[in-house]
Nucleic acid binder design. Structure first.
Ligand SMILES: [Zn+2]
Ligand SMILES: [Zn+2]
Ligand SMILES: [Zn+2]
Ligand SMILES: [Zn+2]
Lengths: 145, 145
DNA sequence: GCGGCGAATGATACTGAGTCTCAGTATCAG
DNA sequence: CTGATACTGAGACTCAGTATCATTCGCCGC
């Protein structure tokens, strides 16, 4: 999980204004403990008693994404979700039960992408790898206590 | 590209009825030459002068997907697209310019997924790899005829 | 501290993908 | 052929996401 301060620091360091609503969104994101959706943040805000306009939430997420501190992932069910994360290249393992996610440093996909490029003639310039499974905690719960 | 007959064969072989609308959708899918969206099929139908209800198109795609002859891919832009494809495990390289897609036989991700599982403690039981780039044809066009 | 400017906000209206319903239709086993 | 039932589609509906625009607010320079 990324701390709210990390998100806000990214804001400041890029010439964007640090505003109240953005602070709130950053806090919500930081409190998410895993993958989250825009709509999820919206209700988290409502549940927390704070109010931020829907448009603002979407804009803030988009901004954080453009700064590389939040990344979009598409859940198997089709939802557009996001995870807060470090900005260098890496991938995620996401728990299909609780949504918690863990970062995975590059495990050799670059090479693999090059292989595919060579094999197909495509100029591969983007790739997405998402791994889904059950996290240790949820495994423990599933196996009885 | 998968032939319409392949899709229909999958239907028949699974106890589902072979109906007119499904035949049309199968044909539309077969004529797509790459990744396509439900909405895209809808307009393709309109353009072709045939009519199939929106709901039916969505249901047919869903069905084909459950039969493993169509697979969902999430485009970088966020659209939910699909590709017709063989049902054994493999991945896709998709052209970001024209949408054409090519199948890629497994290039070692299974092993990679196992590595990640070992490293993170997750029980990884699903993964999605999508490669995006420019296909040979579009590269040629881009580089000035 | 204060003023001003442009960035940011949010109420609200809107768009459009995808779903649901249900009465009517078509498939196919027997 | 015929009945059981799987399938269809018009259209209403949901709801994530976007567009608009008057208002507000952060920030920089004084
Ligand atoms: Zn990350
Ligand atoms: Zn979990
Ligand atoms: Zn395929
Ligand atoms: Zn292309």
């Amino acid at each position: 999980m990324t701390a709210a301060t990390t998100l806000l620091a990214a804001l400041e360091g890029s010439g964007h204004r640090t505003t109240g609503p953005r602070r709130i969104v950053a806090e919500l994101v930081a409190g998410q403990d895993g993958a989250f959706t825009a709509v999820g943040l919206e209700s988290a805000a409502r549940a927390g008693g704070v109010h931020v306009g829907r448009a603002t939430i979407f804009r803030a997420i988009e901004l954080f994404e453009s700064l590389g501190v939040v990344e979009r992932v598409d859940l198997p069910a089709g939802d557009h979700a996001y995870v807060a994360c470090v900005s260098h290249h890496h991938h995620h393992v996401i728990c299909t039960t609780c949504g918690r996610s863990t970062e995975v440093e590059d495990v050799g996909i670059e090479a693999l992408a090059r292989t595919v490029g060579r094999r197909t003639g495509f100029r591969v310039d983007e790739h997405r790898l998402e791994l889904f499974g059950i996290c240790p905690d949820c495994q423990r719960v599933a196996s009885g206590t």
